[in-house]
Every structure is written in C-alpha cells, then in structure tokens.
Amino acid sequence: MALWGDVERAALVALLRHTPTEQGRRDLVQRITERGSVLDLLRERLGPADLFTDPMEDAVREAMRELASWEQEGIHVLTMGDEWYPYRLRDVFDRPPLLFGRGEIIPDDQGVAVVGSRAVSDPGRRVAGELARGLVERGLTVVSGLAAGVDAAAHRAAIRAGGRTVAVIGTGIRRCFPQENRDLHREVADYGAVISQFWPDKEPDKQTFPQRNGTMSGYALATVIVEATERSGTRIQARKAVEHGRPVILLRSVIERTQWARTAARLPDVHVVDNVEEAIALVDEVVDRPNQIEQLLISALGG
C-alpha cells in the first residue's frame, strides 16, 4: 500500500468517526485494503456534495483539526497507511486502522509480550521480572498491558534493567487504568511507548481489554503467559496469538491451573516450559526463525 498523505489520514479519522462498532471497523480495514481509497469510502458513507455544502470536505476539515490538536499535545497518531505503523501489526488480519501513542514509536520493534494475572502471586511476580530482564539482555522490547500484577511487574523490571518496554493499553491514551499505575504509565512512555487503539478519552469497558489483547499479540513476536486463572483475559491473547501465527509460551503453572491452557497446549506453536531459562531459550529460537527461513530459501534456490 502506498503511504498516505494528510488528506487520506484525515479521511480515515472521519470515516472511523462514522463507524462505531468493532466489526464495522474490521470490515472497513478489509475494504480499504481491497480498494485502496479512503476518500472513496468516505464519499460513499457521507453522500454527494450539493451546490452549497460538501459533507466529505467538512468531515475531512474537522478531522484535520483533530489530528493537529492531538499532535500538538504530543500524541503520535498512526494510521494503517503510515510508514511508522508497526510492521508486525500491519500483517495481522484484525489490525486496528488507527493507533495513538506516546513515547518512541519503532515500526520494526522486536518485542515479546509478557502477560498474566492481575492478582499475581509472589513467585509469579518474580518470574515476570526475570523474564523481562532476560529479554532486555537480548536487546528485545518487553511488551505488556500496563495492568496490575504480571504486567506491572514486567514493565518495572524492564525499566530497572535499562531496557525498552511498550504498553498496549485498554483505554484511550489520555486515560490510565488502574489509577495506581499512573506513574508507571508515564515511566513506560519515557522508556519506550504507550500505545492505544481507542479514541484518546475512551474509558475502559468489557470490550476494550479483549481488543487490546489482540493488538498486543499482533505487535509482539511471541506471547509468554506467566500466570492465569480460568477466566483470565490472557486466554484471549493466547487464542489471538494462535490466530495470528505467533508462538505462545505457557509456564507450567498455567497448565496446571486452567483447562483452557491445557487445551491450548495441544495447538501448533504453543509451548509449555518449566522455568524462565526454558522460556528465554524458546524466545531465542523465535527471534532466529527469519534467519533460518532465509537460509532454507537460499539452499533451496542453490545459493
């Protein structure tokens, strides 16, 4: 897809303002991918101009004002047609058409998601911290959801280790949930980035967190699940990661405590490990896969 200019970016914002449902947005992404013209779709949605007014021109003008206001506030706005839109997320079928961010956005970021229960045990907190430090030592970004428990432990450990961490959040970029992580929210933006797929003032609800789990799966090279309950949101991320073709690494304690994890463990590219060392070894294999595939192609072509 060609990179978009200011008018196309504004047209997408305007089009999304007229597409309130999640399914509608998914359909919109597919239609944009097929047709390539956001302006055509916006015209189709708003109708033709008359002698006195043009609803599309008005909508685009208002969207340009919104974009300028967000950017003046220090909020990065990334559309699916921008070169700075995360590369790995661009490859998944349910990618969000629009992202808001604070901090340093790296399109080819190499990150691994470390997620788990909000009510984390002390051993789980230690495992999350050890995983984060191991990822930082390898120059990888620690990706998590800025929730209480495992997420917060992973973000803090990455920062203490001097590494990069990215939060994919389930609220608008101007909001923080839970409130106890407000300072951590700012720290993550300082030491990496905070990313949201929702309008900047969006409050959390029962749909936003599952949606962000899918986005986090698409952003990351792999997902490591440290702890979970039977109804944990991490099961959604595990399912989405499988759909996205991303490896899932489950600590054995998750298998022992949840039926969904035992079921997931039978799926392709879902792995069960006993400790942090085994998890990191699997991550090393995941990071090296592109090189292995390249070597196989070279060999097959007689290079």
Rank of each mutant, 00 (worst) to 15 (best):
residue 270 V to W: 06
residue 262 R to S: 10
residue 99 L to M: 02
residue 21 T to K: 03
residue 293 I to A: 12
residue 73 E to S: 12
residue 178 P to T: 06
residue 266 R to I: 07
residue 257 R to Y: 03
residue 291 N to S: 14
residue 279 A to H: 10
residue 218 G to E: 00
residue 20 P to E: 01
residue 202 K to C: 08
residue 208 T to K: 03
residue 300 A to W: 01
residue 262 R to Q: 15
residue 229 T to Q: 02
residue 54 D to V: 09
residue 89 L to M: 14
residue 205 D to Y: 04
residue 86 P to A: 11
residue 2 A to D: 11
residue 182 R to G: 01
residue 114 V to R: 10
residue 182 R to P: 01
residue 227 E to N: 00
residue 208 T to N: 05
residue 232 S to H: 03
residue 110 Q to E: 14
residue 185 H to I: 01
residue 113 A to N: 06
residue 71 E to K: 13
residue 222 A to E: 00
residue 283 V to K: 05
residue 205 D to L: 08
residue 41 L to H: 02
residue 8 E to V: 08
residue 108 D to A: 15
residue 229 T to R: 05
residue 44 E to N: 10
residue 120 V to I: 13
residue 128 A to F: 04
residue 202 K to H: 05
residue 215 T to P: 04
residue 187 E to H: 06
residue 47 G to T: 09
residue 142 V to W: 07
residue 106 I to L: 15
residue 75 I to G: 12
residue 280 I to V: 13
residue 36 G to E: 09
residue 168 V to P: 04
residue 77 V to I: 11
residue 120 V to A: 15
residue 83 E to F: 12
residue 9 R to D: 08
residue 206 K to G: 10
residue 223 T to S: 14
residue 44 E to L: 13
residue 75 I to A: 11
residue 101 G to N: 12
residue 254 V to A: 04
residue 35 R to C: 07
residue 173 I to S: 03
residue 219 Y to I: 06
residue 31 R to Q: 15
residue 205 D to Q: 07
residue 49 A to H: 00
residue 234 T to A: 14
residue 138 R to G: 13
residue 51 L to E: 09
residue 205 D to M: 06
residue 279 A to Q: 11
residue 35 R to D: 14
residue 299 S to W: 07
residue 42 L to H: 03
residue 23 Q to Y: 04
residue 197 Q to R: 07
residue 149 G to V: 07
residue 188 V to L: 10
residue 295 Q to M: 10
residue 246 R to D: 05
residue 38 V to E: 03
residue 149 G to M: 06
residue 32 I to F: 02
residue 242 V to D: 00
residue 164 R to C: 13
residue 255 I to Q: 05
residue 162 G to H: 04
residue 283 V to H: 02
residue 36 G to M: 10
residue 233 G to H: 02
residue 46 L to P: 07
residue 241 A to N: 04
residue 91 D to T: 15
residue 55 P to T: 07
residue 266 R to F: 07
residue 43 R to Q: 10
residue 153 A to V: 04
residue 290 P to D: 05
residue 130 E to M: 13
residue 278 E to G: 14
residue 296 L to P: 00
residue 221 L to A: 00
residue 177 F to K: 01
residue 39 L to E: 11
residue 2 A to L: 09
residue 95 R to L: 13
residue 170 G to E: 07
residue 44 E to V: 11
residue 269 D to P: 01
residue 20 P to D: 01
residue 246 R to E: 04
residue 176 C to L: 00
residue 28 L to E: 06
residue 18 H to P: 00
residue 183 D to F: 01
residue 286 V to Q: 02
residue 32 I to D: 03
residue 285 E to M: 10
residue 192 G to L: 07
residue 282 L to H: 12
residue 199 W to N: 07
residue 174 R to C: 09
residue 160 R to Q: 14
residue 59 A to N: 03
residue 54 D to M: 08
residue 53 T to L: 06
residue 161 A to S: 11
residue 158 A to E: 11
residue 280 I to E: 05
residue 193 A to I: 04
residue 7 V to Q: 03
residue 103 G to T: 13
residue 2 A to K: 11
